[in-house]
Amino acid sequence: MQYRKLGKTGFSVSEISLGTWQVGGKWGEPFSHANADTILNAAVDGGINFIDTADVYGDGESEKAVGRLVRSRSEQIYVATKCGRQLQPHTSEAYTPAAMRGFVEESLRNMQLETLDLVQLHCPPTEVYYRPEIFEVFDQLKAEGKIQHLGVSVEKVEEGLKALEYPNVTTIQLIFNMFRQRPAELLFKEAQRRDVGLIVRVPLASGLLTGKFTADTSFAPDDHRNFNRQGEAFDKGETFSGVDYNTGLEAVEEIKQLFPDQPNLAPVALRWVLLFNEVSCVIPGASRPEQLASNLHAADLPALTPEQLQQVQAIYDRKIKPQVHQIW
């Protein structure tokens, strides 16, 4: 495992880390603490030292599992959680300093920890990025020892650029993958200039970039890949990176031809993300131990060749870019 600096947090984090949206079971399945414990411990055994969770994952159960892991291991494990998505309705007006404080304190109780390494605003409405009082409350929480650092999880490049204006923002979590390339144009450079860490989520485009899906693949009724394809429940870009499913399948088939010796495209897709030095870490999820093993395998792959990179770019430009590039 290789490690990279997480911006001005100073943390040295595993370049392949773990997101825990589905760590207790696949999307749509009830949370399994036994499954979560197996995957989380295997992740640490594999060299992962940065775990990303959120208070809404498994309705707090994911945070409990992550806290249990940290308390049971001797290794340095950095924990990042997120807050804000519990607000109903999820509007800018619902974001208040008191609400943010309450969420942080609830996360501390869930994880049974005294301080949180990183707390991220969880994809708030764009208007929130223009409200300094929401960002200021985290300075107070840091002074009280309840958190160490503040970050933001964003949907759009615009939101990331605005977040960079706040000195206490130390990290930005964003969607970036072969099917979502716009952040590399400007946001990456600005984040690097300000020493802000970049945490990449949805690196496999909700599984599309594993190369294992077909037109006949079915998803459970309560799996967001079934019910959120047009953004019915939350931002459309969180599901298949906003790419039309059938178009994505066509693009994946072309990408597969570039890597005929790789039966599983997932490690290649992760390796592609890690070619960008501005990226601090990538946080693919795993609902089974074998998925975690696949993710870890990315660290062993050679870098993509210049020709492969050019061809991936050409596929993006031709099939994907017209659909998504200017939206997020």
Rank of each mutant, 00 (worst) to 15 (best):
R4M: 01
G7A: 03
K8C: 07
G10D: 10
F11R: 04
S12T: 03
E15K: 14
I16L: 11
G19M: 10
G19H: 08
T20Y: 09
W21A: 14
G25D: 08
W27T: 05
E29C: 12
N35V: 00
A36I: 02
T38H: 08
A42F: 12
D45M: 02
G46T: 01
V56N: 10
G58T: 03
G60W: 02
E61C: 03
E63M: 06
K64L: 06
R73F: 06
Q76K: 14
Q76R: 15
I77S: 13
R85Q: 14
L87K: 01
T91E: 08
A94L: 08
A98V: 10
A99N: 05
M100E: 05
G102M: 07
R109Y: 03
E114I: 00
D117F: 13
L118T: 09
V119Q: 05
V119I: 09
Q120E: 06
P124T: 04
E133H: 13
I134A: 09
L141Y: 11
K142G: 02
G145I: 02
K146F: 04
L150K: 09
G151T: 06
K162E: 15
P167V: 00
T170N: 15
Q173F: 06
R180I: 00
Q181Y: 09
P183D: 13
F188K: 09
F188T: 04
D195W: 07
D195N: 15
G197K: 10
I199Q: 11
R201L: 13
P203A: 12
A205K: 04
A205G: 02
S206F: 00
D216H: 13
S218T: 14
A220P: 00
A233R: 15
E238A: 14
G242V: 01
V243C: 13
V243M: 03
D244P: 03
Y245D: 11
G248K: 03
L249W: 15
L265K: 02
L270C: 08
R271G: 00
L275N: 12
F276W: 13
V282A: 05
S287E: 14
Q291H: 15
A293D: 15
D300M: 09
D300K: 14
L301R: 07
L304M: 11
Q308V: 01
L309Y: 01
Q311G: 01
R318A: 12
R318L: 13
K319W: 09
P322Y: 10
W328Y: 15
